[in-house]
Design a protein around this nucleic acid. Structure first.
Lengths: 354, 354
DNA sequence: CGAACAAATTCGGACCGTCCGGGATTTTCG
DNA sequence: CGAAAATCCCGGACGGTCCGAATTTGTTCG
């Protein structure tokens, strides 16, 4: 009489153990009234389901059927003509998502929301009828509002820095730390006048993580000649040339590979006298050093997060959203001096983690 | 055919599932020759035993009905006398960890590593014999090296920004975004000369996230009078007073509540003429506005991460470490003007997310 | 009003890996 | 040769989950 079990409690209530199990977990298969009745009885009898055992059983039961465990929806919110860069970014994300989802036994379907695609209400209906519960939201322009979806049915991750409507878990590259690591690496290679050339709107979206890290490290790395960052609203050759001539940064960090030509026009030899590192490898054609965000890995991590929550039956908006980030990598290129091997162990061919 | 189970493998070998189970665990009940044969076949078929499942089943069978709990190790690395602040931080983490672990069916045990505690080798042995596989590492001074543990046996999370030996997943507060949000909130409340007063060693450990965010936002928030940040190596009343008199910041952000008295001595009235926000609520006694890192929630998240990996049978060092962060919150206090209710919906009593 | 059909709700079966009692076979020994 | 002992292996039960099937309830239409 000391330890009430699922089965004994079920007998007492005149229900099957299955119904009890489903009711206690709040499965929609059981009538709401029954759920309430069962829970009250369980509480009265002092029954506590063992969550660890439950999780393990769930896995065991699932592993038999193998293969197909469900469908994940990848939701793309397209407000207006999206740039080719965004397309490349999203495709890279998709690669990582699909690969990981497949390995975990999930299939992926892509939905497009926006003027040319589905309305939110329509998406909600489709997901509901298809029984899709896991969502991965691809980065959208601006700050999208998805609060119209019935969130209590879904578990989701936003593949960007931040979403407030609703506040979901996010997965994104760590631009701040990537910049820190990049500057430290450049410093180790002997560069002392790093210059940041950035379009304001790009960094604003990232809450100034590029420039924040740049400003802080410019101040604290030893022996640095501070070059003021050049912010522009649009790409302007004149502005760049004037800035480059005035401050003569020995390594330019920026998003636009076009400036390499402008630097050369000013007499710079890459990588002999000056260097250039593109802040986003997706913008390059492999002809310069660049920061690689490892986007597929981000997608993979996002996928793991969603699947993890699905398996734990956690739905709805999280009580406290979190941001999961991963460090970018420096891809070597002909526009940057390789690291001088101070110790023998550092292999130049290896990509250096930044 | 991709997921061999104990039973399917047994059928194939013409043995019973029981014998298989015993053989794989090396029970003396099974003939040595059979053990070898079974193990070889299991390896060939790609059968993998999930240790957590084993533990659950074992307890289930042994002590029927009794609640089985898995065990997580919380590892504290204490190099020298740890500050009372670190103690408070770790205790808050533990609260969150314990609560979440409990809900997930785990219990927590604390291990202390260091000169006054266990050696790494000893810890490794203890964890092995106790069969503990999930580790949560509490923040350590400096950059600890734990590579001596047999990592292939464990899955772990480090509850701080960064660990490189080995590179593990980390969970930490998002100091950068917390500062951004704090400055935006202060700006919305009408403050225009925020001043940052910070000890270098504190921010250096955070890769200058406080100051990086401060520098960037000082530059981009409209109508700001830039007050240069005051960095100190130790707390000095003279340096602070000189800085405060010279630049007259209308809100001081810093770690040390002591400066409130110094500000008052300079003629400041809190919160009438000036304000103070402590950058770490654990340093305050509730007598001033402060940033709350929501440490228990961080612990909770760390716990979820470890348990998730345990359930998925993922051990060893991750191929690509990630950092999971959560936003701090602004706790209102008598040293800060409340937000002026522009719209009626903003309740002053509610803590504003920063 | 009732039949046909759809949706909602509940149930039964199969399953996971472990432990223990016990069965089957072989070995030891009187 | 027979009995006891040793060795090796098997079946049942455990608690909880999942899925398909069965049963009940509700709805539409002739």
């Amino acid at each position: 009489m000391s330890a009430p079990t699922l089965r004994s409690l079920a007998r007492e209530l005149g229900l099957s153990r299955t119904t009890l199990s489903d009711a206690l977990r709040g499965s929609p298969r059981v009538k709401a009234e029954t759920v309430a009745r069962v829970r009250a009885a369980a509480k009265a009898a002092g029954y506590e389901r063992n969550p660890l055992t439950g999780a393990v059983m769930s896995q065991l039961r699932r592993s038999r059927g193998q293969q197909f465990r469900g469908v994940l929806a990848v939701v793309e919110i397209i407000a207006e003509g999206h740039s080719p860069l965004a397309v490349r970014y999203n495709d890279a994300l998709m690669d990582g998502i699909s690969a990981r989802a497949n390995a975990l036994g999930f299939k992926v379907e892509r939905f497009v929301v926006g003027p040319q695609g589905l309305s939110l209400g329509r998406l909600d209906t489709i997901l509901h009828t298809r029984g899709i519960q896991g969502l991965i939201l691809l980065p959208a322009v601006g700050f999208p509002d998805l609060s119209a979806l019935s969130w209590s049915r879904y578990t989701a991750v936003y593949a960007d820095y931040f979403i407030d409507h609703p506040p979901l878990h996010c997965v994104c590259c760590d631009h701040y730390r990537s910049m820190i690591a990049l500057l430290q690496e450049l410093h180790a290679r002997g560069y002392r006048r790093p210059g940041l050339f950035i379009e304001i709107s790009l960094d604003e979206r990232l809450q100034y993580r590029w420039e924040g890290a740049f400003l802080a490290l410019q101040k604290y790395l030893p022996g640095i000649t501070q070059v003021p960052a050049l912010q522009v609203q649009g790409l302007s050759r004149e502005a760049f040339t004037a800035w480059f001539r005035q401050y003569d940064p020995d390594v330019v960090l920026g998003h636009f590979p076009e400036v390499m030509d402008w630097m050369k026009a000013c007499g710079a030899k890459l990588p002999k006298t000056h260097a250039f590192v593109c802040l986003n490898s997706l913008r390059t054609a492999g002809d310069c050093a660049a920061v690689d965000f490892q986007v597929p890995q981000l997608g993979s991590r996002a996928c793991e997060l969603v699947v993890g929550q699905l398996l734990h039956n956690e739905f709805g908006v999280p009580s406290q959203p979190s941001l999961t980030t991963m460090l970018g990598r420096l891809i070597e290129g002909p526009t940057l001096r390789p690291r001088v091997a101070a110790k023998k162990k550092k292999a130049a061919a290896q990509p250096v983690a930044v």
